Computed example of a mutant assay.
Amino acid sequence: MNGAGGITSLTLQENNTVHVGVFGELDVFTGPELRTLVIECLDQRPAHLVLDVSGVSFCDSSGLAALLEAHKSALQAGATFTIDGVRPAMRHVLRITGLDTRLGLRPKPARQRFES
């Protein structure tokens, strides 16, 4: 588990998929941490990158930008990208910004992988 600054993360790798559980606030201060974490995960050359954001308590526009950048980085690395565990408030923001269709949200939360 990593928790150097404002976000805490837990990374799990199975079947050529990297699952990343993100906990805390995703904002101007922690967005760079997420970007670094995603690059480190993509260095493992997974076929799939899944971000579980069920532990994210707040996400501002900088957090949304970090998610967009994570999506772009995954695609450039040849990996699929999925966001899992999106809470209703975040889902609403993603829907009104149009990012819900762009970022590969799972329609229903998958089984709980990470617990805070």
Score class of each variant (00 low, 15 high):
Met1Cys: 06
Asn2Pro: 03
Gly6Phe: 00
Ser9His: 04
Leu10Gln: 15
Thr11Lys: 11
Gln13Ser: 11
Gln13Ile: 13
Thr17His: 02
Gly21Asp: 02
Val22Asp: 05
Phe23Asn: 08
Phe23Leu: 11
Phe29Leu: 12
Gly31Arg: 12
Glu33Pro: 03
Leu34Asn: 06
Arg35Leu: 11
Leu37Val: 08
Leu37Cys: 05
Leu37Gly: 08
Glu40Leu: 13
Glu40Trp: 03
Cys41Gln: 15
Leu42Thr: 08
Leu42Tyr: 10
Gln44Arg: 09
Arg45Gly: 00
Arg45Asp: 08
Arg45Cys: 09
Ala47Glu: 15
Ala47Cys: 04
Leu49Lys: 08
Leu49Asp: 08
Val50Asp: 07
Leu51Gly: 10
Val56Cys: 08
Val56Leu: 09
Phe58Gln: 07
Cys59Met: 14
Asp60Ile: 02
Ser61Glu: 05
Gly63Gln: 04
Leu64Ser: 03
Ala66Met: 07
Leu67Cys: 05
Glu69Ile: 06
Ala70Leu: 08
Lys72Gly: 05
Lys72Phe: 03
Ser73Tyr: 01
Ala77Gly: 10
Gly78Ala: 09
Ala79Lys: 08
Thr80Ala: 09
Thr80Pro: 00
Phe81Trp: 07
Phe81Tyr: 13
Thr82Phe: 01
Asp84Tyr: 02
Asp84Gly: 12
Asp84Leu: 09
Asp84Ala: 12
Asp84Thr: 10
Asp84Val: 12
Gly85His: 05
Pro88Glu: 14
His92Gly: 03
Val93Arg: 05
Leu94His: 01
Leu94Gln: 03
Leu94Ser: 06
Thr97Pro: 04
Gly98Tyr: 01
Leu103Thr: 07
Gly104Gln: 11
Gly104Arg: 09
Leu105Cys: 03
Arg106Met: 13
Arg106Ile: 06
Pro109Glu: 07
Pro109Tyr: 02
Pro109Ala: 15
Pro109His: 12
Arg111Ile: 11
Arg111Gly: 04
Gln112Asn: 12
Gln112Ala: 15
Glu115Asp: 10
Ser116Pro: 14
